[in-house]
Write a protein that binds this DNA or RNA. Structure first.
Length: 341
DNA sequence: CACATGAACCTGGTTAATAG
DNA sequence: CTATTAACCAGGTTCATGTG
């Protein structure tokens, strides 16, 4: 059907970055563009129309297939629009270097906001903006330390301590399992536990995992203190892209304590019993305790995960049977050969 | 101060008892 | 017989307190 016989199509137009909309009807792209430019006092030459929604350009054949009352943006030559993406990136750029006025405005908006979604977005935003990530000492950021003992004077120091503390509790669990090991093997079990204790102590209880000041290989975060969820134990990545910076503010610090170091091969259900069994059944062989050490206390078997990515179901994973004992060397020699892969 | 310890807490899965 | 419920256990963490 010829365009002239059709009912005109209606649109809502606006200029780039303008909130003001006005209605325009027309039977062709050209017509709508001309009316729009007239209204906005823009040159028709070089200008075009695109959908506000996703930025696709409105061309002749596309004209009739878009729904009535679609929102359009008028672009002059050189201007671009990618739809919501453009809105978002403009929004984000405002926070590149947030200034007081912007924060004040957000507070104002939040104070009389009723809709829960908008309330949450604004609150999250203010929360994010309130972070003082760069500050490190108690003097620089007293609120961060609220509720912590006075002996903690630096953020890195405290987080290092909290990591050490978590890992020490793993060690304690290993020690206390001695009581369920058969009496014949108990002595050897405790000896192995002590070996682990020594090694762990030398490693500073792996407190560096949470310490942003630690050197690159030793920490789980960026030098700024950002931690990313490593995803459920049986998945390679975190689909939700969870991340947190406990160095930012007090709330983040508290929230970070709900993140877990999850043993991929479970400590209590699997690793510790396997260690006990290996010792009980050693039958002259030497238990490769460092393998178990790796499983219990190091990133070899630990994932840092957001609580939502912490699956508490049984993992159904076992230790590698080939790595439980030191490789057999010539039976005569006492000294074990270096571990092979 | 560094570390050990145990209680308390949270969440979620498993299982056994109980109600319908 | 199935559906709930409750108890228990495992995954974790923090906190207060004690000890060398």
């Amino acid at each position: 059907m010829l365009a002239v016989f059709r009912k005109p199509k209606t649109f809502k137009l606006r200029a780039l970055h303008s909130q003001e909309k006005f209605g325009v009807a027309g039977r062709s792209c050209q017509e709508v563009l001309q009316k729009g430019c007239l209204h906005l006092q823009l040159p028709v030459a070089g200008s075009r129309l695109c959908l506000y929604e996703d930025g696709t350009e409105l061309t002749g054949d596309y004209f009739w297939s878009v729904p009535d009352n679609s929102e359009l943006v008028v672009l002059t030559s050189g201007q671009t629009w990618q739809g919501y993406v453009s809105d978002l990136s403009r929004f984000l750029s405002a926070f590149h270097k947030p200034h007081a006025g912007l924060i004040q405005a957000a507070r104002q908006l939040l104070s009389d906001e009723q809709a829960p979604l908008r309330q949450k977005l604004l609150a999250d935003l203010l929360h994010t903006v309130s972070e003082n990530i760069a500050a490190e000492t108690r003097d620089e950021d007293p609120p961060w330390f609220e509720g912590l003992e006075s002996r903690f004077q630096s953020k890195s120091g405290y987080l290092r301590y909290s990591c050490e503390s978590r890992i020490r509790s793993y060690l304690r669990e290993v020690h206390s399992y001695a009581s369920v090991v058969g009496v014949e093997a108990r002595g050897e079990y405790s000896r192995v536990a002590d070996l682990m204790c020594h090694k762990l102590r030398a490693a500073g209880y792996n407190g560096s995992y949470f310490d942003r000041g630690a050197k690159a290989g030793g920490r789980l975060c960026t030098p700024e203190g950002w931690f990313c969820c490593q995803g459920p134990f049986d998945v390679d990545t975190c689909a939700s892209k969870h991340s947190i910076n406990p160095y930012g503010n007090r709330e983040s610090r508290v929230l970070f304590s709900t993140w877990n170091l999850d043993h991929i091969i479970e400590k209590k259900r699997t690793v510790v019993p396997a260690l006990a069994e290996a010792i009980t059944e050693r039958d002259g062989r030497e238990v490769a305790w460092e393998y178990f050490y790796g499983l219990l206390f190091t990133l070899e078997n630990l994932k840092l995960v957001h609580i939502a990515c912490h699956k508490k179901t049984t993992h159904r994973l076992g230790c590698d049977p080939r790595r439980i004992y030191q490789p057999q060397t010539k039976p005569k020699r006492r000294r074990p050969a270096r571990k092979r892969r």
